[in-house]
Design a binder for these strands. Sequence first.
DNA 1: ATAAAACCTATTAAAATAGTAGGAATATAA
DNA 2: TTATATTCCTACTATTTTAATAGGTTTTAT
Lengths: 148, 148
Amino acid sequence: MMISTRGRYALRVMIDLAEQSTDSYIPLKEIAARQEISEKYLESILKLLVKGKILTGLRGKGGGYRLNRAPQEYTVTSILELTEETLAPVACLEKDAEPCTRASACKTLNMWKGLDRLIRDYFDHITLADLTDQVSEAHIFPPPSTSS
Amino acid sequence: MMISTRGRYALRVMIDLAEQSTDSYIPLKEIAARQEISEKYLESILKLLVKGKILTGLRGKGGGYRLNRAPQEYTVTSILELTEETLAPVACLEKDAEPCTRASACKTLNMWKGLDRLIRDYFDHITLADLTDQVSEAHIFPPPSTSS
DNA sequence: ATAAAACCTATTAAAATAGTAGGAATATAA
DNA sequence: TTATATTCCTACTATTTTAATAGGTTTTAT
């Protein structure tokens, strides 16, 4: 499987925060309760998101987390890339993959590259705002293809 | 990462066999040597492909493996689904996933479904023949998108 | 001071993936 | 009919990745 719980949880947290539509900080405890995710595990995920500068944590009483930008400013890619290590569909397309000696003769490389592009394009064009208010879904989440 | 070595090796073997363009059986030993894959590991992969009826094994001296059909009759999906366990991008879309109690409220479900469809469509429309003779690649492996 | 919160480091548990070992059954050909 | 080359079968082991837990430290508001 491709997207780990880390990435899926990260998305859920971001959506959760986007939906609170408040400027104040929301404590992890609340988010974890609402999303039914272990506090400790969630903590380790939020750390990644803070480190990646897509949200801010404030310590101490009254502290918590909040988004740094408006929901439409976050692409799904920008969230997943912080938690997923890689979004590449195969090892040879990962960032610091050791160069493949078979690359020149490889009959599958183009296919993997095409897929990689497809997936990135898909995630690049969905924002947090698209996820919170799924009104005009159709153009974003296309219906099943009817071609042969 | 999404596609395991099992699946990638399976594809390479199928391509290898397609390129031999002979009706006789090719021993695993030869394939493994040509593809530089451990014989024993390859064996476990070929077992899956035989079981899945996409190729036939013949025992004994002079034996080996051969394709059951013409290369253009194999979609990439038909090969990967035998080795990959699942091609679903997330757990909740796997075949016998336990029903998710959050499904009705889930803001990400449509996105995952859309991605699943995208990937399946992609693999469904590439055949072994497309991989062996990559002439008119362009319409199969689209170039980078130029949209914003 | 106290309490509530994020932050930090380390460890453990579970699952999936990758790979290995050894022999049994089968078919061909000398 | 015997030797040989092959697939087939069962089991095991190792490695890596993912998921989760534990316990303490620092910061901030009241």
